[in-house]
Amino acid sequence: MHENVLELSKVCKKYGAFTAVDDMSFVIPKGAIYGFLGPNGAGKTTTIRMILDILKPDSGSINILGETSALNVRQRIGYLPEEKGLYKKMKVWAIISYFATLKGMDKKLAKQRAFELLETYGLKDFADAKVESLSKGMGQKVQVLSAVAHRPELVILDEPFSGLDPVNQEVLEQLINDMAHAGQTVIFSTHIMQHAERLCDRMLLIAKGRKIFDGTLDQARAIIPRRVILECQGDIAPVLQTNGIICATEKFATDATDTSGTRHWEIQIQEHANPQLILQRCFENGIPLTRFDYTQPSLHDVFVHLVGSDAREHSFR
């Protein structure tokens, strides 16, 4: 039994002179919810298409569910592409059951499963409607359902949240969690960090076709040193002797009219350092604090920190 559902090793893909994916290697363990994060044009969709063997990599190897090509195991995979589309003239239940039968499900079971899913995820009333009569968001939900109706071991969703309203985003998060609980491995790509923060066990950050980060949420947060922000009257030199402090920088107020004499410090601390220690030092040395602020960096900060300059460059190109 393979422990990893997916292994990529040194995968490259070029479109002419443009390198879409460069030296991509990662491993996805069974049963995880795995996030593909990255700015627009980072190579997420190309990577996913190569995983599914819709595109062939120029070099490198892919092992999926123990096979070298996803085509050999496509019945065990569910896929929602980035650009959504359905047959407009087909009925909602029929399209879900059609895609499920293409994945090898029995016709009768597929129909039964379609109605079951539609009921669970709030689309029961639209089962007999034609796809063209649905709103965009509903159509997208139908497409997600048609991608997972056959209970695949590995589910790959490309930008599943785009175009959904907050309520339906929650429904979708619920669906992803349900699948993870059922033991299915879910990979999804997104550029909205909140979803990744809430859902992912592990995440992969891609920019310019290269892997920038691969690990758990905590590991990601650890990339940005944790910061303590201090504001006080006078000097904080005694405090800086505390163990675990990496560096401290004084930020000068841009407003010159501020004459209160308040000084503003930003202290970066090591991952395992205890911020309470700094607070304790302050009291011991009688430094009157007007502000003590300790925050976990959000994934958003990590994202901007890692790819910020690149992403901006992209958008102005």
Partner: peptide, 9 residues
């Protein structure tokens, strides 16, 4: 873009 779903199947 139905083609992509089909090609995954």
């Amino acid at each position: 873009r139905i083609i992509e779903v089909l090609l995954a199947s």
